[in-house]
Design a protein around this nucleic acid. Structure first.
Length: 656
RNA sequence: GCCUUUGUAGCUCAGGGGUAGAGCACUUCCUUGGUAAGGAAGAGGUCCCGGGUUCAAUUCCCGGCAAAGGCUCCA
């Protein structure tokens, strides 16, 4: 018998008799064999020490492969479980998968609990086990034997998992003193695990069901080198430094108050001004794109939300209605702007010539979020959407999508997001019972979205079954500077509300027609959007957006008058600048301005005061030399113009 | 809402059964200094809130509230 193996580079190797992936690795090089964690055989990831089929394609997976990492983390989860079983006898185990960064294991400790203080003990037990160079032995077992094993052990979670499996497809993996129900694959042995850290502990419902028991979920990560763990921990520190809650406080942008209430942000002057700039940016762009601005109140009659259907669907999970003292009328804090906008559409007869009608409002809405769900500005209970509703004819959907996409791209460019993709959410391919609206309209709209996205040449993924019941949608996902994913802008087609509000327009045929409604919010919400740009930029906002564009630093208070004069000139050029009048040395003023992330510092001393120049220093760059105030103003304006056209970003990146 | 952790000066944090500390920020004074921290003095606290144990609680216990990390949910 011969085994024929095709490697990723296309080369074919032939072996006598049965071989494993590990054998193949050894035949290539000892070094490779040491690094092999698992293998992809005919597309399936398997243990490296399993016998290969006679004819197969093989990729040897190491730490450099996502699947290789996942194998090591999954094996690490088993070892951590063994450690937990040793430290907490009688613990029962749920599931322990590898995740994007590391792994976790869900465990039922009975009435015991694990806190951060216990991490060290778990880590040292883990290291002790790993040092034994444990191997993972795969065993195929019958369903009856599997049930017998875990009945004996008294682990009802594993028994429940086994129940869902087919006899003949059940495998156990055994390492050291620990045997687990597991599909595999696993690493050859634990000698490659050189560093381990328990990261956090949290509660997690068994099978994600809040009605079932809450298990203790222990998150951890392992690495093949201590240095890599150190780097990972350093990266986590970096992310912490960019945390919008921390940066927001440092830059005096916003705050929260217990007395005002959780999840209700208070915008400080600098933050409020930054918000205003974003709003004005969007307003200007929307005006150019043919939107009209409307304004509606913060509450609306409960009847309005009964009409829209929101009351029935979300009423229980909303802030409860407020009532009037005399008449007992019920009002809702508005959770969304669309019902109000529908009423504006319905306020008078509409002709097809009026369409598309684009109603825009920076509308503040209030949504109840569970207390545990609140998170800085990213998840709040009161927030302002850059909302608009487009009422159009079915044949205008694509054109409107194109225009909205343009708007979103403008935003992404102005904020220096280069890494993004569009997700198109369509109907379930099979089950169409839950969707409202005619087949014809859906087909048309889905095609319109796909075409519009294609025409813009965006990186796009299509998800079937992700559409809302009322229409298909397109969401923008961006990656920030640390590679974390965020969902920002959204564009959604809605067939439901026009129906419920019985919206109509008169067509060219003089008959009544139902308009299509499109919800869209390029920022999503200002709160969330600002949170994302803070974390993306680390607080070093684009020049056009930043709170203070320049700070003027007198070398001594003899030059305060000269500084005031420069400040006035800059103000006339619409540049945001102030004078640091403190009785400190320039070195100190520069340091503070650098820490405050002020883009430009203008030093004024004897020389500048005499010849009317400014000595310019750029944040993070250092001294740029001196120039006239006008030249500086021009420089700032040119920078801003470039940023708003989206070109400066790439340039800056190259010089960095 | 649930699990784990946390709550001490404006900020970052130390401390601990006998009514409290540091650095930065702040105020005043000295200093007038040229590209990342000049010096000195001073002021500032309901130790998150409520209850309990104790001769005595900021510290220990219980209950709230808020925050952090998760889970669940999300128009």
């Amino acid at each position: 018998m011969k085994t024929k193996v095709t490697l990723p580079d296309g080369s074919v190797r032939s072996y006598d008799g049965a071989v494993t992936a590990m054998d193949v690795a050894k035949s290539i090089s000892e070094g490779l064999a040491r690094n092999v964690l698992s293998a992809r055989v005919n597309g399936e990831v398997r243990d490296a020490n399993r016998t290969l089929p006679e004819d197969c394609t093989l990729s040897l997976l190491t730490w450099n492969d996502t699947d290789g990492k996942a194998t090591m983390w999954h094996s690490s989860a088993h070892v951590m479980a063994e450690a937990l079983e040793a430290l907490y006898p009688g613990a029962k185990f749920g599931i322990g998968p590898a995740i994007e960064n590391g792994f976790y294991y869900d465990v039922d400790l009975g009435d015991r609990s694990i806190g951060e203080a216990d991490f060290a003990a778990i880590e040292s037990k883990f290291k002790e086990l790993v040092a034994k160079k444990l191997t993972f032995d795969r065993k195929e077992v019958s369903k009856a034997d599997a049930i017998a094993y875990f009945t004996e052990k008294g682990d009802e979670y594993k028994l429940e998992l086994i129940e869902g499996l087919q006899d003949g497809q059940i495998t156990f993996y055994e390492q050291g003193n620990f045997t687990d129900l597991c599909r595999g694959p696993h690493i050859p042995d634990t000698s490659g695990i050189k560093a381990m850290k328990v990261l956090s502990v949290a509660g997690a419902y068994w099978r994600g069901d809040e009605k079932r028991k809450q298990l203790t979920r222990l998150y951890a990560i392992t690495f093949p080198k201590q240095k890599e763990l150190d780097e990972y921990l350093l990266m986590l520190e970096e992310a912490k430094k960019r945390d919008h809650r921390k940066v927001g406080k440092e830059l005096d942008l916003f705050t929260f108050s217990e007395r005002v209430g959780a999840g209700l942000p208070l915008w400080l002057p600098k933050g409020a001004a930054l918000r205003e700039r974003l709003i004005n940016f969007m307003k200007t762009a929307q005006e150019k794109a043919g939107y009209v601005q409307v304004a509606t109140p913060h509450i609306g009659s409960k009847t309005l939300y009964e009409t829209s259907g929101h009351w029935e669907k979300y009423g229980k999970d909303s802030f409860q209605p407020i009532n009037t003292p005399q008449e007992g009328e019920l009002f809702m804090l508005k959770p969304m702007n669309c019902p109000h906008h529908c009423e504006i559409f319905a306020s008078r007869p509409r002709s097809y010539k009026d369409l598309p009608l684009r109603l825009a409002e920076f509308g503040t809405v209030y949504r109840y979020e569970q207390s545990g769900e609140l998170h800085g500005l990213a998840r709040v209970r009161g927030f302002t959407q850059d909302d608009a509703h487009l009422f159009c004819r079915p044949d205008q959907v694509k054109e409107e999508f194109l225009k909205v996409i343009d708007l979103v791209l403008l935003v992404l460019k102005a904020l220096d997001f280069k890494n993004f993709e569009a997700q198109i959410s369509l109907r379930d391919k099979v089950d169409r019972s839950k969707y409202i609206g005619s087949e014809e309209n859906w087909v048309k709209a889905e095609q319109a979205i796909i075409d519009a996205a294609a025409e813009c040449g965006m990186k796009t993924v299509v998800e079937y079954g992700e559409a809302a019941f009322y229409g298909p949608k397109l969401d923008f996902m961006v990656k920030d500077a640390l590679g974390r994913k965020w969902q920002l802008g959204t564009i959604q087609v809605d067939y439901n509300l026009p129906e419920r509000f019985e919206l109509e327009y008169v067509g060219s045929d003089n008959a009544k027609h139902r308009p299509v409604m499109i919800h869209r919010a390029p920022f999503g919400s200002l709160e969330r959007f600002i949170a994302v740009i803070i974390e993306h930029t680390g607080g070093r906002f684009p020049l056009w957006l930043t709170p203070e564009q320049a700070i003027i630093l007198p070398v001594s208070d003899k030059y305060l008058d000269a500084c005031a004069h420069i400040a006035g000139m800059l103000k006339d050029s619409d540049i945001r600048a102030s004078v640091d009048e403190r009785n400190e040395k320039v070195g100190r003023k520069i340091r503070d301005a650098e820490l405050a992330k002020t883009p430009y510092m203008l030093v004024i001393g004897e020389k500048e005061a005499a010849d009317g120049t400014v000595s310019v220093r750029e944040h993070g760059q250092g001294d740029l030399g001196s120039m006239s105030p006008t030249a500086f103003a021009d420089l700032v304006k040119a920078r801003i113009a470039e940023q708003l056209n989206g070109r400066v970003a790439e340039k800056e990146h190259k010089t960095n």
